[in-house]
């Protein structure tokens, strides 16, 4: 009889060991009506969860293997889909070690049942792309998609690699797509949420839609596409500079606005307070205005 475990048994034991090691750090976040979503214990009294999965009320109960506690939302950022809660009890945890996600690498999405017991989904890292911007304007360091199905209650749990290192937090993307918000993004955003309750983000105070530059102005503008100002926030930086609805923005600081991404990148938190020159079309003429990047309210 062969007493050596076969490779399938080893594979199985490895997954079991990762789940066993991580289970105290995977929590069920329950509201008063006992509906729950998953969260991950980030540090002894801080839970990280999916912003889009959690409503507006403040009081939650956090339950995991071996502990439970009351918890309150202390910060959220829709831009990166990160929300944090502070627990009333401290739970001893070692910090997560970050993973470098590799396409095709094993990924385990851990989740909590409503009683706090762990659950796990297994798959692989489907794709790893460059940094990207969410519709809410947040910058996410890598675009990681997973070949894993996830129930709504399982969103917000840790996604780990074959060594148990943290790839990121599971997040439901567009229908049928499961993402991981990378550990690097969590590392960047959670400290800001702990300090300010939100993420400072550059702001011009305009709602913009891509628009084709009218043919007569293409040559002079030097580009075919700009961004039409649909509305201007009262007393925002754009309003102060004299931007009005109907203007077509061409460049901000010389960066052509062929789409939203270059502008979203220009408005990162490091650039708050900087002056920028905006080139725009108004009433059939091209003109320049100076404004300052403000802080999103």
């Amino acid at each position: 009889m062969n007493l050596e475990p076969n490779s399938l048994q080893l594979h199985s034991q490895a997954i079991e060991a990762i789940v066993a090691a991580a289970k105290t750090r995977v929590v069920a976040i329950r509201n008063a009506s006992h509906r729950h979503v998953t969260g991950l214990l980030w540090q002894p009294d801080v839970i990280v969860a999916s912003e889009q999965a959690i409503g507006e009320r403040d009081e939650y109960e956090v339950v995991a293997t071996g502990h439970s506690s009351r918890a309150q939302i202390i910060g959220r950022d829709a831009g990166t889909n990160i929300l944090i809660l502070r627990t009333s009890e401290r739970i001893d945890v070692s910090p997560w070690s970050p993973a470098v996600p590799a396409i095709g690498g094993v990924a385990l999405a851990l989740a909590a049942n409503s009683d706090g017991t762990p659950a796990v989904r297994a798959g692989i890292v489907r794709s790893v792309g460059d940094r990207w911007f969410s519709r809410a304007g947040g910058r996410i360091d890598q675009r990681i998609t997973l070949d894993i199905r996830l129930h709504r209650t399982e969103e917000g749990g840790p996604v780990v690699d074959a060594s148990g290192a943290l790839i990121g937090m599971s997040t439901l993307g567009r229908p049928g797509e499961v993402l991981a918000i990378p550990t690097a993004t969590l590392n960047r955003v959670v400290p800001q949420l702990l300090t300010n309750g939100r993420v400072a983000r550059g702001w011009l105070g305009v709602a913009l839609q891509p628009i084709a530059v009218p043919d007569a102005l293409v040559d002079q503008a030097g580009q075919r596409v700009g961004m039409m100002v649909m509305s201007v926030a009262e007393r925002g930086p754009a309003a102060t500079a004299g931007v009005t609805a109907g203007d077509i923005l061409l460049t901000v600081d010389g960066i052509a606005l062929r789409g939203m991404r270059p502008l979203a990148a220009r408005l990162s938190e490091e650039n708050i307070g900087q002056s920028v020159e905006v080139r725009l079309i108004r009433g059939g003429h091209i003109q320049n205005l100076a404004t300052q990047i403000g802080t999103r309210p």
């Binding site: 519709r135 997040t171 439901l172 567009r174 797509e177 062929r258 979203a264």
Partner: peptide, 13 residues
């Protein structure tokens, strides 16, 4: 869900 900023192809704007 949590979605990416989308952009139309230039010729369809």
């Amino acid at each position: 869900g949590f979605e990416e900023l989308t952009e139309s192809a230039v010729q369809s704007i």
